[in-house]
Structure formats: structure tokens, C-alpha cells
């Protein structure tokens, strides 16, 4: 039972207790500033009119669904290489948050697409890649739920996460290829370096706000996961106390 003796999770919980109020404060401030600028100071786009305001949530959500996968990949390396228990917790609690942000990116993307393209969904390269990413998040979450032992589930999910991380660039590349093959460039694109500062600033602030939101939720979810594992360990110990005959053998594998 070396897991808790290292006291890492305990120290981590104490750290969360200190950091979390500050993070929440900054997050709320950033959202207030970002939303104010998005609605009141940012100008209308000359092509897209007011729908450009959807961009201030769509782009940060899309950026976060990539960042969340990056966090999960780094955590998975931590699980497999250093066998750090917190890495496992981090990867597991990031998955639902990543799935939620991916969902947000998809929904806002298609709501933006309806006035722009005239349809809710086009099989655009980016939308399609994000849809694939959502399927991967949901698959990972399912894999975690179907395995009882958190350690084994963590390792399995870490392998799948890393294989996915290897595969995502290939998927992106092949979807791009497929898209240029089937669709001539008819999609309105707004990338390019010449975004006006009045649009860029609210976008950046919203990106910061979303990032802070991710870290707030991630830390809270990690705390829950640590508590859940404590409950699990204690329940197994309770079971072993009440049935001493089979105790010693069954209590061990949890951590």
C-alpha cells in the first residue's frame, strides 16, 4: 500500500485547496472581460455580420479540445513511464471535460455554419476531424467505465490515448486529403494573419478564460477522483475486515 504513503495525493489536495479560489476568481474575471468585449466592443465582420460573435466561443472551444488531448497524452506518458498515480487521475478526469469542449466546438461550429454555409453540417476537414476526436473521447471514457480496477483501466486508457495521439495527425492529414478530393474550396475561411485587433483581443481573452475554466474543472475533477479512490480503498479494507478469511488476498490489488 505504498500509494498513500508517498502523500502525493494528499499534498496535491492541499495545493488544490490553495490554488482553486484564485483560479476561479481569474476565470470569472476573464470571462466577464471577454464576454463584454465580444458583445460590446468587437465590431461586426463586414462579411459575416454579427455571427462573427460565435467565433469567440467556437475558436477557444476548438483550441481547448486539442489542448485537453495534449494534457491527456502527457498524463498517459506519466502513467506508463513513471507510473505516477496522479498522472492516471489527471488523464481520467480530463476526458469528460475534453469531450464537453469538443461537443461545444461542434455545436457552435454548426450553428455558425447554418447562416454562413446555409447548412448545419458540411463535411469540412476541420469539422470532420473534430467529430472523430469526439468519438475518441467517448471511446476512452467508455473504456474507463467498463474496467473495474482503476490502475489497469488507467494503463489501458493510457495506451489508447497515446496510440490516438500518434494517429490524430494522420487522421487530420487524411481527412484534409479526402476533403480536397471531394469538395472544392467553397467554405468561407477566416484564418490568415490579418485579423483585426478589435477582433483578436476579445478572442485572446476568451481563449485565456476557457483555458482557466479547463484548469478549474480539471483540478476539481481530479480532486473528486482522488476522493473516489480513497472511498474505494477504504471500502475494500472494510470488506476485508468484516470477512477476515479472504481478506489478505483480496485487499491488496487496489493500489
Amino acid at each position: 500500500m505504498a500509494f498513500w504513503d508517498y502523500a502525493n495525493p494528499t499534498r496535491f489536495l492541499r495545493l488544490v485547496q490553495v490554488v482553486l479560489p484564485w483560479l476561479i476568481g481569474f476565470c470569472v474575471l476573464a470571462f466577464a472581460a471577454g464576454l463584454y468585449m465580444a458583445f460590446f466592443t468587437a465590431p461586426e465582420d463586414y462579411q459575416q455580420g454579427n455571427t462573427v460573435r460565435i467565433m469567440y466561443i467556437h475558436v477557444p472551444a476548438a483550441w481547448l479540445c486539442m489542448m485537453c488531448y495534449t494534457v491527456m497524452s502527457i498524463s498517459s506518458i506519466g502513467t506508463l513511464v513513471w507510473k505516477h498515480p496522479l498522472a492516471d487521475v489527471s488523464a481520467k478526469s480530463a476526458a469528460p471535460i475534453g469531450a464537453a469542449f469538443t461537443f461545444m466546438a461542434l455545436v457552435t461550429g454548426s450553428l455558425w455554419g447554418k447562416p454562413m454555409w446555409g447548412t448545419y453540417w458540411v463535411w469540412d476537414a476541420r469539422l470532420t476531424s473534430v467529430l472523430v476526436l469526439l468519438i475518441m473521447y467517448l471511446g476512452l471514457m467508455t473504456l474507463w467505465r467498463t474496467m473495474d480496477d482503476p490502475i489497469k483501466a488507467g494503463k489501458s486508457a493510457a495506451i489508447l490515448t497515446l496510440v490516438g495521439a500518434l494517429n490524430l495527425p494522420i487522421i487530420k492529414f487524411s481527412v484534409d486529403w479526402w476533403n480536397t478530393l471531394h469538395q472544392p474550396a467553397s467554405v468561407v475561411r477566416m484564418d490568415g494573419p490579418t485579423i483585426h485587433a478589435d477582433i483578436l483581443w476579445p478572442l485572446l481573452i476568451m481563449a485565456v478564460a476557457f483555458t482557466l475554466l479547463f484548469f478549474v474543472l480539471h483540478l476539481m475533477a481530479m480532486r473528486n477522483e482522488i476522493l473516489r479512490r480513497r472511498v474505494r480503498a477504504l471500502r475494500m479494507r472494510a470488506a476485508s475486515v468484516s470477512r477476515p478469511g479472504t481478506a489478505a488476498a483480496t485487499a491488496q490489488p487496489a493500489e
Partner: peptide
């Protein structure tokens, strides 16, 4: 990969398909 991840599950077949399909998309496309 999917088969070895779901080997310990009693009914892993469906989950296996869900896990493997995203990874198989590039092969299908090309």
C-alpha cells in the same frame, strides 16, 4: 490494439469496434 485492450472484458466486441473505427479512418480514406 483494440482486441488486446478489451481482452479482459466479457463483452468487449462492441467497445472494440468503437475504439478501433476512429483509428481505421485513414486506411479507409486512402
Amino acid at each position: 490494439i483494440g482486441a488486446s485492450l478489451t481482452v479482459s472484458l466479457r463483452r468487449g466486441g462492441l467497445l472494440l469496434a468503437v475504439l478501433v473505427i476512429p483509428l481505421a479512418i485513414p486506411v479507409l480514406i486512402f
